[in-house]
């Protein structure tokens, strides 16, 4: 079960999206997600959908990967849809006892759900096409101007790198400790809330101890490999803007402008 989580996992490839600078991708994702919120009409949604599909096609990622990204969040997606469909007021299409579905609600529901789905899809596109290290590199560089304001950009990036590296390891460890305690008769699944919270102690204590031990080991290993903070460090993969980034950014800005124009003229 724990092994199936794919969010934040890089899928190696050589598409144009893979080759883009992570800074461009991060900024573009942020801008696009905000821009989606300005789309309101059906026509503009069709436009957004077309663009999203085009970008996914450009990424050359297997479709099932994106489906996997959506799957763990289906409850939220269905919930969003339901809330809008069942609670909005307006022209009633169908009614049964106190439940009613309105035309406005259906419209809002579909649009909001689409918005959410695009949001998830775009952020997964970012993490699927960008290796975790390039992603943290990108964040580090983007935050660098704020270093003077006291934002520890290198340290933040290092923390993220290590977290990404160790999440799968700790998930495996959780699974192993759970099984070991279950073999000693522990029960994690039944009983009252208090009892269940208590039953987590035999899982959490070993997990924390293990995490601290790993942190200790890792600190020593990093020191042995001459790690001494961000100063004087170089990178194997330098980030550099290319024409690809300029072109991509221009396309994106054009798309955003079109969305804004559509909103302004309510197309």
């Amino acid at each position: 079960m724990l092994g199936n989580i794919t969010i934040g996992q890089y899928f190696p490839g050589d598409s144009l999206l893979h080759r883009m600078d992570p800074r461009t991708k991060i900024l573009a994702t942020l801008i696009y997600i905000v821009a989606i919120f300005f789309a309101q009409t059906v026509v503009s949604y069709l436009f957004v959908t077309a663009f999203t599909v085009w970008v996914i096609w450009m990424s050359k990622l297997p479709v099932r990967l994106l489906w996997n990204a959506l799957k763990p969040l289906w409850i939220i997606i269905v919930f969003t849809l339901a809330i809008h469909v069942f609670t909005s007021t307006g022209t009633v299409l169908w009614q049964w006892s106190f439940i009613h579905i309105t035309k406005e609600g259906l419209q809002m529901g579909v649009l909001m759900t689409a918005r959410l789905v695009y949001l998830i899809l775009f952020s997964s596109l970012l993490t699927y096409t960008t290796s975790p290290i390039r992603l943290t590199d990108g964040i580090e560089r983007l935050l660098r101007p704020f270093q003077r304001l006291g934002v520890p950009s290198h340290e933040l990036a290092m923390m993220m790198t290590i977290a990404l590296r160790f999440i799968p390891t700790l998930l495996e460890e959780t699974d192993r400790i759970m099984k070991a305690q279950e073999s000693r008769g522990a029960d994690f699944t039944t009983g009252s809330l208090v009892k269940r919270a208590k039953s987590m102690v035999p899982l959490l204590v070993p997990l924390f101890i293990s995490a601290f031990r790993r942190a200790d080991d890792l600190a020593v290993a990093m020191e042995a490999r001459c790690y001494r903070g961000g100063e004087g460090r170089t990178r194997m993969k330098e980030l550099c803007y290319t024409r690809l980034d300029t072109v991509s950014m221009s396309i994106l800005i054009l798309v955003v402008l079109i969305i804004l124009v559509m909103r302004f003229y309510a197309v």
Binding site: R176, I177, A180, Q181, S183, V201, P206, I209
Partner: peptide, 13 residues
């Protein structure tokens, strides 16, 4: 059926 996993000391709490 008792089960002793690899590195069982990691389950002490």
């Amino acid at each position: 059926v008792g089960m002793v996993f690899q590195y069982p000391e990691h389950q002490l709490f």
